[in-house]
Design a protein around this nucleic acid. Structure first.
Lengths: 236, 236
DNA sequence: TAGATTGTTAATCGATTAACAATC
DNA sequence: TAGATTGTTAATCGATTAACAATC
């Protein structure tokens, strides 16, 4: 596709527009899902795809797909469709996968270790640089190639290693203290699994509070009510 | 409040209406969050709350709160507000907390154990009855009071113990097989952490596919784009 | 009773879908 | 070129907010 350069021009223009006209939350919420499906198609060796075909695979309307992709510029080509690899890469870029973010996992309990053991981070361009814990029993040990540090070194470590993201897998009680230490040390993204709604004064810090219990309740609601409403997932 | 009975009448009426006019997904998605905040207020000993006050605490409009609660009937009382305990209990009921669902966790790795170690299930009225794994090293051991069974007994166990919910914390490769076994054995809710979009033929089976990676990407998007858009969480 | 606050209707806003002209 | 499929505008639909009458 020799016209990629032209497409790129549109892309950059739209990105600029976005400052004034920010992309809606509804669209943003769908981006990771597009990214997953496109990754899948890429692995299957699919070179191009039309909004109609993607619509069938993902169970959303082709109209919505075109609208969504257009928020960010001309990702496609009339009469041809979308280049899977290019689209996948662009959406990844939008989602910050190419920012080279660096993360620490605070709390080396089961959940911390479970997260450290997956490829979740690396697959999304995030580098996990270390684990932290307060228990002498695990400090100094290695897990999956990550050294478990003493949580008392958390602040200094983040400063010295330009850490951007702090993953909180500590008990509720310690969450605020750890968060504060990290924010103080320049961390500006917090991924909080501590089962409480963490808020940070500094508005430049982004927080994602994960409430797995909410997902469990949605499942139960579905079981109780939905019964014959079929698969939920993205629907609820 | 002697008028609880009257309120209850309205409630049941609305529940009946709901069959024709199903509650929107947007509302359902907000229920677990209401439930969490009301639980918090309850623990603080708060007896009643107005939509205006709850609106301030939760950062949503009072109008929306009243609309949402009204989907299910008159939870409140004019001139008074809402009874925290009653409302909390009713929303819990709506979410299926009182159905007495029973769950098994399939996959006793770090994630499976992390889930088993929390109070997430019991707090939501779900009883975890056992863990399953395929590794001889863990089969027969006990974790947090739960016996780890051989995954080959999964089907029989579910049948004999009226298991409703299957939590999948196994690798992608085994997810479908485990899911099929459980569905076959009468499980009709699947909570899938296997990082793939699990679909089940039988439309009476409800599936919640958890994509933690999507949450991570949303965080990264926020960090890249939002910067000064403030806290995301429920917003994105 | 007067004041407060819900329940509910109507108005607004935004998101989704449909349609089609542009263009590859 | 003709056929396909996007990009984009217009129409529809649904969800949120505002307003206020009902009523505790």
């Amino acid at each position: 596709m020799e016209s990629i350069d032209k497409v790129k021009g549109t892309f950059d223009k739209k990105i600029a527009d976005a400052e004034k006209n920010p992309v809606s939350v509804a669209v943003i919420r769908r981006l990771p899902r597009y990214h997953r499906y496109l990754g899948e198609l890429l692995r299957e060796g699919k070179g191009r795809i039309s909004s109609a075909e993607l619509s069938r695979i993902m169970g959303v309307t082709a109209s919505q797909i075109r609208q969504d992709f257009n928020c960010f510029g001309g990702f496609g080509q009339q009469g041809y469709g979308y280049n899977v690899k290019y689209l996948h890469s662009k959406i990844g870029e939008l989602l910050g996968m190419k920012e080279g973010y660096r993360a620490v996992i605070v709390g080396a309990g089961n959940l911390g270790r479970a997260l450290a053991a997956t490829h979740m981070f690396e697959r999304r361009g995030v580098t996990v640089v270390a684990l932290f814990d307060n228990s002498p029993a695990v400090i100094g040990t290695e897990f999956n190639g990550f050294l478990v540090h003493d949580v008392r070194e958390l602040g200094d470590f983040c400063r010295e290693n330009s850490v951007n993201i702090g993953v909180l897998t500590v008990p509720k009680e310690s969450a605020y203290e750890c968060a504060a230490t990290m924010v103080e040390a320049g961390v500006h993204g917090l991924w909080n699994f501590a089962n409480m709604e963490l808020t940070v004064e500094d508005k430049s810090v982004v927080v994602q509070n994960v409430h797995m219990g909410d997902s469990l309740m949605t499942l139960c609601f579905g079981m109780k009510t939905g019964k014959d409403r079929g698969i939920f997932d993205d629907e609820i």
